[in-house]
Design a protein around this nucleic acid. Structure first.
Length: 260
DNA sequence: ATGGCCAATATGATTGGA
């Protein structure tokens, strides 16, 4: 069972590299972020042709998340609980029925939060608090669960090429990192860090200033695993080569293998 | 030289990204 997350930065702009990557990496489940379109505009056909079921939670122009799965998607639910006034499309979860049992999966697009301080940063921290409450409630179920997406959070200085340039950024501020630690302290495992303590593992490189050529990156796309999923973790990977390919997103896919 | 982009929006600057 291979599960991936990828912030595609517009699904319409990324259909070609997505289809090529799906054929090569062959993930069973994919969590997408920043599809940047309404549900009706999602390019379903070329993805369904590869055998994927699709669930989307889109909005016009901004944000938007989706789940792709070779197994049936059940109990699909959109929107992170905890704020009925939050209109941003940043969360979708579902139960995936595998041959060996059920797996809960969520695709998460956590707010950027810049500039900080300000309304956007306040929204980000509240969103992280809501995610904490959600995770707490779900962990009680003791299910295999993967919360995957663009967390817009740099966990530690080992996750950024040049930490001093990020000290005032919403992705790296102490409050952001404290909220991240609250999530992991609940018992969620950061899959990449469970398999490597190497510095220089990045998932995002800015389009500007030759950031990729200089490896000036950050690690902000994460897969958090419940204990019942973490026990089944066998491999992880970051498809860095996608950043140097045709029509790249500024994020690359991150994936895990679970013995499920 | 300490820069340099990309995508969506009714196509012209603005907004958002990170």
């Amino acid at each position: 069972m291979r599960i991936a997350t990828w912030n595609v930065n517009s699904i319409k702009q990324r259909v070609e590299p997505l289809v090529k990557w799906l054929g090569e990496r062959k993930p069973d489940i994919v969590c997408l972020q920043e599809i940047k379109c309404v549900d009706e505009a999602f390019p379903r056909e070329p993805i369904e042709a590869l055998g994927y079921n699709i669930a989307t939670h889109g909005q016009k122009a901004y944000n938007g998340v989706a789940l792709l799965s070779k197994f049936p998607l059940e109990e699909v639910s959109s929107g992170l609980p905890g704020d009925d006034l939050d209109e941003h499309a940043r969360f979708i979860e579902a139960i995936v029925s595998t041959g060996k049992g059920a797996l809960r999966v969520a695709s998460i697009y956590l707010p950027n939060g810049n500039p900080a301080p300000g309304d956007k940063y306040t929204y980000k921290l509240k969103w992280m608090e809501r995610l904490y409450q959600f995770a707490l409630e779900r962990l009680v179920l003791e299910e295999p669960m993967v919360l995957a997406g663009d967390y817009n959070a740099i966990p530690t200085p080992d996750d950024v090429h040049d930490p001093k340039l990020w000290v005032n950024d919403a992705l790296f501020l102490p409050d952001t990192r404290a909220k991240w630690r609250m999530l992991t302290s609940l018992g969620l495992t950061d899959a990449i860090r469970a398999t490597s303590d190497d510095p220089g593992l990045y998932t995002f490189w800015d389009y500007q200033a030759g950031a990729f050529q200089k490896n000036n990156g950050i690690r902000i796309d994460h897969l958090l695993l419940s204990p019942q999923a973490a026990d089944k973790l066998t491999a992880t990977g970051i498809d860095k080569q996608m950043r140097g390919g045709e029509k790249p997103s500024d994020h690359v896919p991150v994936w895990i293998d679970l013995d499920l």
